[in-house]
Design a protein around this nucleic acid. Structure first.
Length: 611
RNA sequence: GCGCUCGUAGCUCAACUGGAUAGAGCAUCUGCCUUCUAAGCAGGCGGUUGAAGGUUCGAGUCCUUCCGGGCGCGCCA
């Protein structure tokens, strides 16, 4: 039952705290956001960062260098943002926190942004933004998203199914989350290189080919390959002769024996086509050009061993060639090795990953490599990253970041399986999503014609599955519950899609062409002000996700946006308003629609004009 | 045995990485459709953040111990 990265288990052990962090940096310098402290530029910007820069400058004027720690105010009555850094700064400077806070405000140059900055409690700074500042950022003619001033090259390693089998739910999280992060990085102007490190090499393929040769079956259907895999696995575990034949087949394959290669290529082609169809159905932005299979590194593996050897990192242990690094010393004194080459001469998963790092560092010139895999592989990556550093495969300019995620559980809290205990195939999962969504669409809006119902069911069904995953913290295990995700209430795809559809309906009803709405949305009512403050934060949310790889914070943001819009929609009549007020409210509606569409799009969800 | 990880309302999840009175949805109870889609809105109920200590001006978040769940521990990926 082995699969590639997406759900393959491996070791875990740890020796320092870094591993307990949700995102595993391996020690290179963290990414910093862009600078820029001018507030009068048209269009979007990271307001949080702007405020931080201003406050830090003021702190500096007071003789203290410290982070401003700006965040969203914990309660609306405190204002829009709060800065918590003054108290910590006062501590290191041995100053009175409230006094320092007052002094910081005296030195603070933020009149163009904030209408009020006040000291509160033990030394919080509470900041309320000016309506004019908000309006300046709500320009319908400006792009929604700012590009990074220092774009990076980011390799995103995700999805990575095992081609010996059909894609199943175990591949879902990596594909969905990795894809969202890749899109967001791209939207921010970074050069994203998607790498679908598919498993197309190794023992399991030897097994398949050996069984294929024995059995004489020759069907091309993937369903059959699935069955072959199961049978081959049974024989592999039970028959020593078959096991030997499988291993011999791997050797033949790796040596490039033509017959074995041809059959292998046939397996791969069928399986890749199947994956591609699923990516398209899922709305994942992966294509054939993003496939960089394990086998592609085959020729580079001896070079990896050589390089390790040259640097004196290799030690022979029980016939295998291993790297023993002191940071992996256990309590009992032994060191957990990274095995680079087995005693029979074959290479392993770790060897391939080392080769991949070399390739990404050198040929791809990456600044960051993000790995979206099951959290059970945390120790594997910890080790691989450490060895890559030690061997100089990754220089200090390259950030290697494991973005782990938890398991998908069934409603009973146990691993998500079919009733019979088998893995749930992705095709079946998506079929069910659409069927369930279709039932609801028919019930909620029977007036739509059949074609549109199908379209809505697809957007809602697939969207619900993806959003259920994207709205939860990736590091925790999560319960896959149809009723929950299709309840269509709360923080779900349907709620967000509905908010968007309502806005489109508004434009249709009012005969308004949203594209023709220019200018800025100017808040005056409370509901407008609340909405404006959400709208203005898209940029900072995207930058946050680009840095930490947690798309659920973007989901929470979009949910907040949808609720604030709906409140505005209830409180402020739009089409019934007149003159400037009507135009202004239409601008709010349009800016909300743009933001929802962009945000959902970055999460990989498709909007529909009505539902 | 060693290690990683998680434990927040009856349920599913948040809490911007140490900040102010721990927030949402579901469920339950109460209102709101001849007025822009009620797949909606407004409100009520619901918490010793697994337990006990500790650090700190300040702890769901950091440290220690314990309890409980998941996972991983050299030639599989």
């Amino acid at each position: 039952m082995k699969t590639k990265r997406a759900c393959a288990p491996k070791t875990s052990r740890r020796f320092d705290k870094a591993l307990s962090q949700a995102t595993l940096f391996d020690g290179a310098t963290p990414i910093q956001g862009e600078g820029g402290t001018s507030s009068n530029r048209i269009g979007p910007m990271n307001v949080k960062r702007l405020l931080s820069a201003r406050i830090e400058a003021a702190l500096k004027d007071c003789g203290v260098e410290a982070p401003a720690l700006v965040k969203i105010a914990s309660r609306p009555e405190y204002g829009h943002y709060q800065a918590d850094g003054v108290m910590a700064a006062a501590k290191t400077a041995k100053a009175n926190p409230r006094q320092l806070a007052t002094e910081v405000i005296d030195h603070l140059d933020a009149a163009d942004i904030a209408e009020a900055v006040a000291v509160a409690g033990p030394g919080f700074l509470n900041i309320r933004l000016r309506d004019q500042f908000l309006a300046g950022k709500l320009n319908l003619e400006a792009p929604l998203i700012d590009k990074a001033t220092h774009p990076q090259t980011v390799v995103v390693d995700y999805s990575c199914p095992n081609l010996a089998k059909e894609m199943h739910v175990g591949h879902l999280r990596s594909t969905i989350i990795g894809d969202a992060v890749a899109r967001i990085l791209e939207a921010l102007g970074h050069q994203v290189i998607r790498q679908n490190h598919v498993g197309d090499w190794g023992t399991q393929f030897g097994m398949l080919l050996a069984h294929f040769d024995d059995g004489g079956a020759d069907s091309d259907s993937l369903g059959d390959l699935e069955a072959y895999y199961r049978m081959a696995k049974v024989r592999f575990d039970a028959e020593p002769d078959f096991q030997a034949a499988s291993r011999a087949m791997v050797v033949a394959l790796q040596a490039g024996e033509t017959g074995a290669r041809a059959r292998w290529r046939r397996f791969i082609r069928i399986s890749l086509d199947h994956c591609q169809a699923l990516y398209e159905r899922l709305g994942a932005s992966l294509g054939p050009g993003d496939v960089m299979a394990e086998s592609a590194y085959n020729d580079a593996l001896p070079g990896v061993i050589e390089a390790l050897e040259r640097q004196g990192l290799l030690t022979e242990s029980d016939g295998a060639r291993c790297v023993f690094l002191p940071q992996f010393r256990r309590k009992d004194g032994g060191i957990t090795p990274l095995i680079a080459q087995k005693s029979d001469g074959a290479y392993l998963y770790a060897t391939t990953d080392l080769a991949a790092i070399r390739h990404r560092a050198q040929a791809l010139a990456a600044d960051r490599v993000l790995y979206f895999t099951d959290s059970r592989q945390a120790f594997h990556f910890k080790q691989v990253f450490a060895v890559a550093r030690q061997a100089g495969f990754a220089g200090t300019g390259l950030n290697l970041e494991h973005m782990p995620f938890g398991a998908m559980l069934g409603k009973d809290g146990k691993p998500f399986k079919t009733r019979e205990g088998g893995v749930i195939k992705l095709t079946a999962l998506l079929d069910e999503a659409e069927v369930r969504a279709m039932r609801l669409v028919r019930e909620k809006n029977p007036r739509l014609d059949a074609e549109e119902q199908a379209k809505v069911a697809r957007a809602v069904g697939i969207g619900a599955v993806k959003y259920a995953d994207l709205s939860k913290n990736r590091t925790s295990d999560y319960l896959f519950d149809w009723e929950q995700m299709l309840a269509f209430e709360g923080n779900t795809a349907p709620y967000l899609l509905y908010a968007y559809a309502r806005i489109q309906s508004l434009f249709r009803r009012g005969g308004v062409d949203p594209e023709s709405l220019g200018g800025k949305a100017q808040p005056s009512a409370d509901a407008e002000r609340d909405l404006a403050f959400v709208l203005v934060r898209l940029q900072e949310m995207l930058e946050q996700v680009a840095e930490d790889g947690y798309p659920h914070s973007l989901s929470a943001y979009l949910y907040d946006l949808a609720t604030k819009f709906t409140r505005f929609y209830e409180q402020c009549p739009i089409l019934a308003a007149e003159g400037g007020e009507r135009a202004n409210r239409l601008r709010f509606a349009q800016q909300t629609a743009r933001t929802l569409e962009a945000g959902l799009g970055l999460l990989g969800l498709e909007t529909v004009p009505r539902m």
